[in-house]
Amino acid sequence: MELFVSSFLNVEVVWAARALLLQGFANTMLLIAIAVPLGLAGGLLLALLSLTPVRIARLLLAVWVDLFRALPPLVLLVFVYGGLPFAGLELGPLGSVAVAFLLNSSAYYAEILRAGIDSVPRGQWEAARSSGLSALDTLGWVVLPQAVRNVLPDLVSNTLEVVKLTSIASVVAMPELLYQARQAQSVTYNASPLVAAALIYLLLLWPLVRLLSRLEHRLPSRM
């Protein structure tokens, strides 16, 4: 027990590593602030494009989305970070993370938003257009608000996944929370900084998980 406490819950070691952990936390927040909006914007764009009546375009978009849903995000990230420099495209850790997350999470967001837009009855479009709203206004004021409300649990759930996924940036030497905790662990040969990182993620995301649990249990009503 003592061995467990001293190697996993060692307050002194965590305190000594506080600067590293804090900097890691700040970088993780930066990654979240980049990855979530990029994914949402890319996903919205893909979802809107897939409204096109052109069949072949819809098919190509579906292939694109499925491609990035089938590829593990870490593989994508390693490819962007370690592969593209051979083509003369050196993006660095932060740039690579941004590109990989844009490709990966926009595919997931696109699927969710498309389902949301599909769930808004056709008559809403027609009514809004015939009352004089332009196509863009119809989308922004009538369709999207209802679409987002209908798929809110999925949007929150995917955002949670994107936030957790930022931890893979440690693999390309981006000094985010996990990377810094791992640095501290390898210097001290003590796992407490890793436990601290896990606790920080838990504190950050637990409210979101609780919220999600409520949203999800309220929804599946049988008609």
Binding site: L160, S167, L178, A197, L205, L212
Partner: peptide, 9 residues
Amino acid sequence: LFRAIPPLV
């Protein structure tokens, strides 16, 4: 716990 902590961590 397992929904909130990233699997890689």
